[in-house]
């Protein structure tokens, strides 16, 4: 590996890692599959770097590789049915491209509207999101921690995600323009 290419590639990967992870997680709900796809996508991207048109943005190119890698892995693991459908994938890609166009240094900085929406959640829903996503608890452990049943907790989390989606839409975060 040419050291300069290697360093440049690593910088690019680190810059886009958050986006890539969000994209893969949006496409597949299976953590192990997502982790494998993340690794493989970076390796495939490195291998195909000579084919990358440097006059074009890196992120869509990387997402294309990641999408194909994930689909290939899912097929091999007979999990294709767990992957988002084509229309959903297109939707996700459009939204991510929109988020990327937001002026900010880091991907995390572009997610401020999400943080704002989090604050608007009902306390039990916010707790559910924090237990699952911030503390990375197993859902059953999270349910116990929240003092409720698995089923109730799952519904609470589901409603929280819907609320966040709606809030982000209102903010124009998912639609491009404030409602």
């Amino acid at each position: 590996m040419d050291p300069r290419d290697s360093q440049a590639f690593e910088i690019l990967v680190r810059e886009h890692a958050d986006m890539l992870m969000a994209y893969l997680r949006a496409m597949a709900w299976n953590d192990a599959l997502v982790e494998d796809a993340f690794q493989e996508a970076i390796i495939v991207a490195w291998r195909r770097l000579p084919d990358f048109d440097r006059s074009r943005p890196f992120a869509p190119w990387l997402r294309g590789i990641a999408r194909n890698t994930l689909l290939g892995l899912a097929r091999k693991q007979q999990r294709r049915h767990e992957i988002a459908g084509e229309a959903a994938v297109l939707h996700i890609e459009e939204r991510l491209a929109r988020i990327e166009s937001t002026p900010a240094d880091r991907f995390a900085d572009r997610l401020q509207p999400l943080m704002d929406c989090m604050q608007r959640l009902a306390p039990d829903q916010r707790e559910a999101v924090e237990l699952i996503y911030a503390q990375s608890l197993d859902p059953r452990v999270a349910a116990v921690t929240a003092g409720t049943t698995d089923e109730t907790f799952r519904k609470r989390l589901y409603r929280a995600r819907l609320q966040l989606s709606e809030c982000l839409r209102i903010k124009g975060f998912l639609t491009g323009a404030p409602a």
Binding site: M21, A22, Y23, L24, R25, A26, M27, W29, A84, A87, A88, H91, I92, R95, L96, L111, L114, V129, Y133, R161, L162, L164, S165, L168, R169, L174
Partner: peptide
């Protein structure tokens, strides 16, 4: 799709 995206972003 939006719920999926929110899930991805929450990671």
């Amino acid at each position: 799709a939006d719920e999926r995206l929110v899930h991805g972003l929450l990671a």
